[in-house]
Amino acid sequence: MSLAERHIPDRLHPPLRRALLRWESLLLLVAAAIFAANAMASPYFLNAWNLSDATFNFTEKAMVAFAMALLIIAGEIDLSVAAIIALASTAMGAAAQAGVGTPGLVAIGLAVGLACGAFNGLLVTRLGLPSIVVTIGTMSLFRGISYIVLGDQAYGGYPAGFAFFGQGYVFWVISFELALFAVLALAFGVLLHATTFGRAVYAIGNNATGALFAGIRVARVKFVLFLLTGLMSGVAAVCLTSRLGSTRPSIAVGWELEIVTMVVLGGVSILGGSGTIPGVVIAAFVMGLVTFGLGLLNVPGIVMSIVIGALLIAVIALPRLWAMRRRA
């Protein structure tokens, strides 16, 4: 038993080598392939303004997906995000009717998102209810309130300044949404990968009991994650409402599925415990490029949803099939 044997190195493999073998690297290749295929299939694709337009396909969903990624890594889920967007948008619409200005509208949108997130978080962490059922319930409740308020009507008439969030550009072809997406990607990346909070999220997702026994305030972390998811849904509601310029109760219907798919496609385990923000960012681009490419080829939107549904199952099934084959 020599001394050399006793010494434990910090790392076995340099970080770079490990990075190359990751899911994210594979996904990046897929993104590049789709990009190339699109460029070949349509002459309109390689145009700065077209590409800029394409980003609107995913920026709003991705903002929610960042928070959802943290929530899923921590072993919970929020299926009410699209309904929160609807409720926040409805609240902003009602406020706009009442003559509230742009800053007030943004504040209302974010506040409604936060309140909805807090409601989900309290039900899950205080009453100990399974988040999947709770958020199926609040999904009906939040959107139901929008229907009660709006019925078959719609809100419009947002102030002119409000259009900036969904339609404005900060620099050349860089839209406000794209810029916000980048800032949020960075912020969530740092939060998950470089802070003690992010470390706690991973610990809880891998083993919530173990994390509790290690002195982590599990309920508090989960509550904050629900708050964040609500807040990001509020942010998405501001952008989407601003972009559309109107609010119907069916706004963003079905987005929860696309957001969950984006997160899972990004390499986040649906069972919790693993995943990265860069993965979700790349997955957002992949989904945006596919949607945009199919759009250029005149493929209708509902076919997109088949592709998304199949992607969702395939990205989980394929690694498992591969593992089974290797074992056999």
Binding site: A203, N206, N207, G210, A214, S274
Partner: peptide
């Protein structure tokens, strides 16, 4: 209730 087995040693120690 013990170590979080999917996390590396150093992260378990410092948690």
């Amino acid at each position: 209730q013990g170590a979080i087995t999917a996390l590396p040693i150093f992260q378990n120690v410092t948690l």
